[in-house]
Amino acid sequence: MDLEQNFRPGEVVYIIIRNPHAQDVAHVQQAAIVQHPEQPNKLALFSHDNYYPLTHEFAIFSTEEEAEMAYQEAFGRVDGEYHG
């Protein structure tokens, strides 16, 4: 299945992303679906001034609530910790 068929440019999604400096740290982050800047026929995720390839390596959710639920299932919850 082609992941790009599920999204349109300008759509806002939520992803679970790991901290590149601490692999045991992850959080939910808002991202936008955009045209890939270097490959005009491809889509990309854009968040915090970074482009990420639109691949199955990302857990992509339509709502922040869905992403938070998946995060809690995968990583648990630390009391008082915010992941948004």
Rank of each mutant, 00 (worst) to 15 (best):
Leu45Ala: 00
Val25Trp: 01
Ile16Trp: 09
Val34Gly: 00
Leu43His: 08
Val25His: 06
Asp2Ile: 10
Arg18Ala: 13
Leu45Gln: 02
Ala32Thr: 07
His48Glu: 15
Arg8Phe: 13
His21Phe: 04
Ser62Pro: 10
Glu57Trp: 09
Ile60Gln: 01
Ala59Met: 14
His83Thr: 08
Ile15Leu: 12
Glu11Leu: 02
Gln39Thr: 05
Tyr52Phe: 13
Ala32Pro: 00
Ala67Thr: 01
Ala59Glu: 15
Val78Asn: 05
Ala31Phe: 04
Phe61Asp: 01
Tyr82His: 08
Leu43Tyr: 10
Phe7Asp: 04
Pro40Gln: 07
Thr55Gly: 05
Gln29Ala: 06
Gly80Asn: 11
Asn50Ser: 05
Lys42Val: 09
Met69Thr: 09
Phe75Glu: 05
Gln30Ser: 09
Asp2Pro: 15
Arg18Thr: 09
Asp24Ile: 04
Val13Ala: 03
Gln35Gly: 03
Ile17Lys: 14
Ala44Cys: 15
Ala44Gly: 06
Ala32Val: 08
Ala59Leu: 12
Leu54Cys: 04
Glu11Gln: 13
Gly10Cys: 01
Asn19Val: 01
Ala26Gln: 09
Ile16His: 11
Phe46Ile: 00
Pro37Leu: 06
Ile16Phe: 04
Val13Asp: 03
Glu81Tyr: 13
Arg77Glu: 13
Ala67Gly: 00
His83Phe: 10
Asn41Phe: 06
Phe7Lys: 00
Phe7Tyr: 14
Val28Lys: 14
Ser47Pro: 01
Gly10Val: 03
Ala26Gly: 04
Ile60Glu: 06
Tyr82Gly: 06
Arg18Gln: 10
Arg18Asp: 08
Val12Asp: 04
Pro9Asn: 04
Gly10Glu: 03
Asp79Glu: 15
Gln23His: 12
Thr63Tyr: 05
Met1Phe: 04
Ala22Asp: 15
Pro9Trp: 05
Asn6Trp: 08
Glu11Trp: 00
Gly80Tyr: 14
Val25Asn: 08
Pro37Cys: 09
Ala67Met: 06
Ala74Met: 10
Leu54Gly: 00
Ala44Gln: 11
Asp2Ser: 10
His83Val: 12
Glu66Gln: 12
Val25Ala: 11
Thr63Asp: 04
Phe7Leu: 07
Leu3Ala: 07
Arg18Asn: 14
Ile33Ala: 02
Glu65Asn: 11
Thr63Ser: 10
Glu68Arg: 13
Pro20Glu: 05
Met69Glu: 15
Phe75His: 10
Glu65Met: 05
Pro37Gly: 06
Tyr52Glu: 05
Gln39Trp: 03
Ala70Trp: 07
Asp2His: 08
Val28Thr: 11
Gly76Trp: 04
Gln35Arg: 07
Glu68Ser: 07
Phe7Ser: 02
Asn19Glu: 07
Gln5Asp: 15
Val34Arg: 09
Phe61Trp: 07
Met1Ala: 11
His27Gly: 12
Asp2Asn: 14
Glu64Gly: 02
Ala70His: 13
His56Glu: 13
Leu43Ala: 06
Gly80Cys: 13
Met69Gln: 12
Leu43Lys: 11
Asn50Asp: 05
Asp2Met: 05
Gly10Arg: 00
His48Leu: 15
Gln39Arg: 08
Asn50Tyr: 07
Gln39Ile: 05
Lys42Gln: 14
